[in-house]
């Protein structure tokens, strides 16, 4: 994942194939090791980066947006009480529970699990996965410092208009 400075002061997040592969591998491993139902790796703005397990049965787009909203709201609470950040959140349900962890202040690792495992095991495995994700994200930050080619520089007005033809 790469964050580049923009002309208007905005930043852009770019994910390249290698990094997604590594994050996917961490998610798959965490899914197996924790015996969770599904794993989502979501960026703090609500975009899904990778998923594992039964994620295909879920509305991951909506989940990602809500998870990011939830983390943003909790971050707002932290700021108000002068706490740096709440790095973890846990929502306990009757059937399914959700464990969320913020990694490197940039991505949210979401684990959905049921009675097939325990919260203790999930927390333990999440700790290990967090270290691995931190390593990947660190590599990514290094890569972001190297300028990359903008593949969208070639987009024409016609390309943009074509999107709205329906």
């Amino acid at each position: 994942m790469q964050e580049t400075s923009a002309l208007n002061g905005l930043t852009q997040t770019v994910m390249y194939v290698d990094e997604v592969k590594q994050i996917q591998a961490v998610s798959d491993r965490l899914h197996q090791d924790s015996r969770a139902r599904a794993i989502l790796v979501v960026d703090k703005n609500g975009q899904l980066i990778a998923s594992a397990g039964a994620a295909s049965e879920l509305d991951t787009t909506s989940l990602s947006s809500l998870v990011a909203g939830n983390v943003a709201a909790t971050g707002g609470i932290a700021k108000l009480i002068e706490e740096e950040e709440f790095t973890g959140q846990y929502h306990e349900g009757k059937g399914i529970s959700v464990h969320m962890t913020i990694v490197s202040r940039r991505v949210i690792l979401v684990v959905l699990f049921d009675k097939n495992t325990t919260h203790g095991l999930v927390r333990l495995r999440v700790k290990k996965a967090t270290v691995e994700l931190e390593r990947v994200l660190e590599e990514v930050t290094k890569k972001a410092k190297t300028p990359q080619v903008n593949v969208f520089a070639e987009i024409t007005d016609a390309d943009i208009d074509n999107l709205f033809n329906d």
Partner: peptide, 15 residues
């Protein structure tokens, strides 16, 4: 912040 994913070949923008 637009989000470009080269792996899934997606551009996501927030309005």
């Amino acid at each position: 912040m637009s989000f470009i994913n080269y792996s899934s070949r997606e551009i996501n923008c927030k309005l």
